[in-house]
Design a protein around this nucleic acid. Sequence first.
DNA 1: ATTTTTTACTTAATCGTTTAAACACTATAT
DNA 2: ATATAGTGTTTAAACGATTAAGTAAAAAAT
Lengths: 339, 339
Amino acid sequence: MSKKVSLKDIAKAVGVSTALVSYVLNNKEKEARVGKDIAAVIRKKAVELHYQPNQLAKSLKSGKSFTIGLIVADISNPFFANIARTIEDEAKKNNYTVIFGSSDENAEKSLDLIEVLVKRQVDGFIIAPTEGSEEQINYLKRSNIPFVLIDRYFPSIQTNYVATANFQAASQATRHLIANGFKRIAMIAYKSKLIHMRERIDGYRTAIKENGALKPIVQEVNYSSVGSDIQEKIGKMLAAKQPIDALLFATNTLSIHGLKYLNSKHFKVPEDVAVVCFDESDAFDFFYCPLTYVKQPLVEVAQQAVTILIDRINQPIRETEEQVLLTSSLVVKASSSHP
Amino acid sequence: MSKKVSLKDIAKAVGVSTALVSYVLNNKEKEARVGKDIAAVIRKKAVELHYQPNQLAKSLKSGKSFTIGLIVADISNPFFANIARTIEDEAKKNNYTVIFGSSDENAEKSLDLIEVLVKRQVDGFIIAPTEGSEEQINYLKRSNIPFVLIDRYFPSIQTNYVATANFQAASQATRHLIANGFKRIAMIAYKSKLIHMRERIDGYRTAIKENGALKPIVQEVNYSSVGSDIQEKIGKMLAAKQPIDALLFATNTLSIHGLKYLNSKHFKVPEDVAVVCFDESDAFDFFYCPLTYVKQPLVEVAQQAVTILIDRINQPIRETEEQVLLTSSLVVKASSSHP
DNA sequence: ATTTTTTACTTAATCGTTTAAACACTATAT
DNA sequence: ATATAGTGTTTAAACGATTAAGTAAAAAAT
C-alpha cells in the first residue's frame, strides 16, 4: 500500500505546522484564530492530496473509536442478519461503525470475540449472550464498558437489555391453538437455560395449564444437532398412540427444520398437525399452507438497542439500567386452525 | 468507561520501563535478553491487572490493522449474510476482524463506506461492487489498497475477483428448460449493467437462440421496486395471448418475489408455469413444488476471496491479478418439468 | 589489571492525531 | 512612549504501543 497522506504531508506541502492543518480541517479556525487565506490554501491542498484522516490515530488520542461491537449467535441466520442490518443503519446515522462476530451459541467463542473487540477499543457492545456467558457480561459491567443485551438477558445480572416479551408471545400463541380446539399441543424448543427460551416454554406451559384437560409436551433439542434431534422427537410424537395435533416452534430455525421434516414424511399441515412458528421467514410464505407465526419486533429491538447504547457511551455513569421488553404480535394464518 | 490498563501501568506497578514490558508480553525475551525473574513478574502483573493491549496503538505503530472491510449490497439478504459468515470465519482463522457495510446497490453509499473504512485503516477490502462504482474501484487500485471483488466485477478494470461462472449457469438452466420441452421461457432479471446480471441474461439468450423455434423474453426490474415491477411484468406475460410456460429468475430475491406473486394469483408451478431459481433459500424447500435452482458456490467464493485478499495484503505488489470464476451446479427438482 | 564481551535493562524516537501553551508580531489604548 | 490586547502561528506533550540504540554493570578473556 503506497504510504498514506498524513497531516504532516499537507503541512510540509503548504509550509505550516501540523497544528494549523489540524485546526483548519477540524473547522476550529475560529477558536484557533487561523488566517483566512492560509486556511483556504490548506483546505485546497488537503483535497488535492486526497487526504483521509487516520481514524486510528484520532481514536487513540480521543479515547473514542466510534465503533460498536456486535455479537450474535450467527450472522447468517436471517433473524440476526436482519437485526444486524438495522443496527448498521442506526449506527451509521450516529457516525458509528459496526464490527461483528458470530458466537455460535458458544461461550468460549463469545469470550474470545469480546476480548478481540475490547482490544480494538470498541466504544460499546450489543450482544445476544450465549448460555454460560454470565462471567463475560459481569466482566463488561465491572470494566464499565457500555453494552446492551438483545434477544436474551440474565435476570440475575442488572444490565441494559432489549428483548421480546417472550412469555406473553408464547402464551398467546398457545392460547390461540387451544381456542382453535387443539388438544395435544407440543412445543419444540432449544435445550437452553437462556431466558428467552425459558420464558417461551413457561408461557406455553402456563397457557396449557389454564385448561385442565390439556397436558404440556415440551421437546428440547440441541443447537448443535437440531436436524436429527427434531426428526426424532417430532417423529415419535406423531407416531405415538395418542399423536400430537399441534406444534409450536420456539424459533425460526426450529420451525424450518421441523417443517422440512414434516414435508419429508408427508405429514400435512394443518390436517395431520397444526403449526405455529416463531419469527418471520420468507420460507413461511412459501409453505403450501400459510403459516401462523409470532412476529417479533426486530427493527424496534435493534433501534432501541443502538439508542440505549449510544446514550450510555455518551454518559456511562447511571444508576439505573434500561430494560425494555417489546411486545410481539401473532399473525394468524391457516396453519393453526382445523381445516 | 474506567481507564484501561496500559503498558505504562504495568511498568509502573513492577518498577521497570514500558520497553521491557512490551518485550516480555510480545515474547521477545530472547532477542531483548530480558531477565527470567523479572519476565515472570511482568507476566504475572499483566494477568493480575487484566491487561488487554490497545490494538489501535499497535496498528498505528505497525501500519497494519488486521481488519478487513466487507461491502455487500445488503447484509440482511441471506445470499450476502452467508458469504459474510464464511468471510468472518476465514478471517478469524488468520487473526483478522471484519467490519461490514451495506451499499444497497447504491454507488454513493458504497463510496461513503469505502471512505469510512479507509479512514479506519482496514488492510483490505472484499466488495460486491455496485453499478457505477468503477471510479471507486479505480481509486482503490491507484491507492494500492488490496481488494477482491466478489459476485460481480468490471471487465474494463483489471482487478482480483471471485465470482460464479454466470453465463454458464444461466445457459445451463435455460437448456434444461428447453430440453424439458418448454417453449415460451421468460427470464426475470434486475435492470443492471453489472456483469453478473449481463452474463446471466446473455447465457439465457444464447441458450434460447440455439433453438431456432424459441424467442428470448427478458424482463428487467428495478432493485428499488422489485415487488411491484415483478407483479406487473409476470402478470402481463401470463395474461398474454401466448402466455409464457416457464420462468427463470436471476437471483434469490427475484425468485422469492416472483413466487410470492404466483402464489397470490394462484398460478400453479409447474402446471401453469415452470420455474428455475438462482441461489439457495430455505424458502425454496417449502414451496409446494420442489424448486429447481442454480446453486452458487457461496462458501468457495468467500473462502477464496479471503485467501486472495490476505495474500495481497502480505505481498501487495504483483503484476497479475487473481481472477476466479467458480462453476455452479443446477439442482433439478420438480418445478422445471411438465407434470 | 585491563580490555572485551555479555547481560539486563533504559532512553528516546516513532506512528498520526489533538490541543494547551508559548511565541512573535501588529494594533489599540493609556 | 509604553503597557495591553488581539492576531496568526509554532512548539511540544500526549494517546499506547514498538524497537533501535544507548548504558551500566557483571562476567569472561587477555
